Computed example of a mutant assay.
Amino acid sequence: MFNYDLSAAVTLMAALLGSLQWYLSWRASSRERDSDLTRWGGEVIDLMAELETFCDPIVKVGTVDLPAVERLSFRASALVDKGRLFFPNVKGGRQSKDDEGTRINLLDEVLRACYVARHLAKHGDTNNRQLREQVWEMRGRFIGLLQKEMSISLRKVHKDQGGQHVPTNPGQWPNPQRKLLLPGDQPPK
């Protein structure tokens, strides 16, 4: 009654399953890359925040641990190279055939962090408000550039989800609505 070629159906089914498997594998590797890129970006942000504090600490007690600052410089240098695993150099900017290319602008921000850490470790110039502001600004640029690179996989945010201004002085915040109970506190009656 039905006349069909079984081998053609099996071939078609195998092709469909192969395509589905390829697509799922591609999506998994894409998610893994996003996860690795997010982890790397988080390390850079942590380093920049720590470096910013070393530039001009709020609490100015004792001396700055210069070896710790130097460790930040080699961490930053390593993060530049790790970043090259995601973002290879841009080729063709120079005429030399030995041109290794130029790093992308996102990695420039990480390299700046390395240079600031080396400067601080060498000169011990740790009460430098302007340098702190430069590191703060470079961190913002880095985050913006990383978000552009990850734009496809970033969660979409609607205007109505925007936050409000948060005063920098916690004394200006409204009183808490929930009662915090710590060990030793008397429970409410």
Rank of each mutant, 00 (worst) to 15 (best):
Lys91Asp: 12
Leu12Ser: 15
Asn105Gln: 12
Asp185Leu: 08
Trp173Phe: 03
Leu51Arg: 02
Ala28Gln: 13
Glu137Gly: 13
Arg129Phe: 14
Ile152Thr: 13
Leu6Cys: 01
Phe74His: 12
Leu182Met: 14
Gly41His: 02
Asp34His: 03
Val59Met: 07
Pro188Gly: 03
Asp185Glu: 11
Val61Thr: 11
Pro183Ile: 12
Ser153Val: 11
Pro67Met: 07
Asp81Ala: 03
Arg132Gly: 03
Thr11Tyr: 07
Asp108Gln: 10
Ala68Tyr: 04
Ala78Trp: 05
Glu109Met: 15
Trp136Thr: 06
Asp56Lys: 09
Leu111Arg: 15
Glu32Lys: 05
Phe86Ala: 08
Thr63Ala: 06
Val61Gln: 06
Pro57Asn: 09
Glu32Arg: 05
Leu16Phe: 15
Tyr23Asn: 06
Asp125Cys: 08
Val135Phe: 10
Gln147Asp: 10
Asn128Tyr: 14
Asp46Pro: 00
Lys179Asp: 03
Trp173Asn: 02
Asn127Ser: 13
Leu51Asn: 01
His119Arg: 07
Lys179Pro: 01
Leu20Asp: 09
Leu79Val: 01
Arg27Gly: 09
Pro188Asn: 05
Arg75Gly: 03
Asp34Met: 06
Phe142Ser: 00
Ser25Lys: 02
Leu106Pro: 01
Ser73Leu: 07
Lys122Ala: 15
Val110Ser: 11
Gln164Glu: 14
Gly124Trp: 03
Ile58Ala: 08
Gly42His: 02
Lys91Tyr: 08
Leu131Asn: 09
Ala8Asn: 02
Arg75Tyr: 08
Lys82Trp: 04
Arg71Lys: 13
Ser77Arg: 08
Thr38Lys: 00
Ser35Gly: 10
